[in-house]
Design a protein around this nucleic acid. Sequence first.
DNA 1: AAAAAAG
Length: 610
Amino acid sequence: MRNSWADSVENTATDNVGPSGGSGASASTRRSSYVPPHLRNKPMGAEPPAPSPGGPPSGNDRSGFNGPTSGSRWGGSRPDYGRQGYSGGGRSGGGWGGRGGGWGREREVNPFGNDADVDLEQSFDQENTGINFDAYEDIPVETSGENVPPPVNTFAEIDLGEAVNLNIRRCKYVKPTPVQRYAIPISLAGRDLMACAQTGSGKTAAFCFPIISGIMRGDFSQRPRGVRTVFPLALILSPTRELSMQIHEEAKKFSYQTGVRVVVAYGGAPINQQLRELERGVDILVATPGRLVDLLERAKVSLQMIRYLALDEADRMLDMGFEPQIRRIVEQMDMPRPGERQTMLFSATFPKEIQRLASDFLANYIFLAVGRVGSSTDLILQRVEYVHDGDKRSHLMDLLHAQMANGVHSKQALTLVFVETKKGADALEHWLCINGFPATAIHGDRTQQEREQALRTFKRGDTPILVATDVAARGLDIPHVSHVINFDLPNDIDDYVHRIGRTGRAGKSGLATAFFNEGNLSMAKPLADLMQEANQEVPEWLTRYASRSYGGGRNKRSGGGRFGGRDFRRDSSYSRSGGGGVSYYDGGNSSGGYGNYSGGYGPGVTSAWD
DNA sequence: AAAAAAG
């Protein structure tokens, strides 16, 4: 039972240096002698202030946190390579961030240790990736495009700079995930990227590492120093507020003590605080589209210095009707054109709308498809049960009781319950609460504060049951979700895949239970197919429903199979699918390794319009 | 049809 949380605590306690990152070489060698390029020839400053004055040292401190490398960052002469806005222009400067002391510039909060359980817990979770990581080996990957840079097998092979390497170690990342193995070299080579992959595959790190490292290496001394306008160098767009928050949190870890500043902006939260954060300087801006448009209209943000653009969950953003706003941001503001910036487009699926977006936003891109993490591994045990609507609550209660009996209702065993509607979420939460189950809810009608609160208490295990609408379906990385219950099945198999993907994360196993009834007929076939594909036991009654093939379950996955999509540029039959076979791509491509997995594309997926 | 996102 090495998998338990307690075990991992123990392991981490004894193994305090952490894994050597597979670098093979001496982790014991002090990296103090190395000075990152952008810090060279700078006078070494004073020692950094103690990371947690008075507090116990965090686990991360042991891995060289206090090393001299970090010292230079905090000395009087901060390397200022054209970064604007740090002084705050004396606006509200002094009074702000009062805890900072020193010279009005607040200390960078250590995103790793300090904040006891929550963060440590995540770290342990990450460490566990080392255990089941082999599960990732089976995930099929394909690339196509001109001169695809070869993938790497270890982080050691990638030169991200010492500061980022340290953070990788602090995150306890041992080995790059498939999407990282391919995407990072592609991105470091300066190429645009269209990637079909889901969060949980390590996407965030895949686009953050090259961005951070690129910003550290780059010379941006030409960056304007606006008084009220800021000029970020990188923009990361994501569909939901919580996802933006999460990307922000991760990016802060990756860029800790690199001098790269990450700021997040999303709606529902007071804009003034976000503005203050922006005015203190921003290199990487993480945002939801609506709030960003607002900031652009107010001329608080200019995109003219953008060198890196990443769009996360692009298909989701289009589903949510963000295309006009995204096009406005990318094409109609002062953003540099494709080719003058580096663009990474991430999407779970690759339907025509995304293909259009790709051809409009990207220049000579490389296509990368990573098999679906949720179904192509055996990490998630999927179950379907036939439950009438009226029986759902009592059935749910049975499941939860069983879990409680097993004593698994704690931090290491959270249960996420998906429902169809916001009203339904409220009702179910209330019902669970009055029946003595510690539940909370997240959906779009709750205030942002309530949403964040719900997520926090859930993550902490204070309310180990979270009732959610699809706002929480994609991308959210919550450690220790051991059970996803589809109380109401979605109408789209991709949504199902995303939902169950909230468990079985980071190489851990998980359980997904779905309640199926006559109202979900359109899902019978896609669900049965998907489960079959994932080597799950398909109940006989579901197979019967599936064989009757109800037309729906709109299958957006062009191509089906284990990938979210395929590079349509290489698809000779592309013209068949309407759209007129845009031929801006000269077939003269090399390598690519395409076709290795052609077997993975099942025989024509039955589609609604056949 | 519902959900999400700008207020």
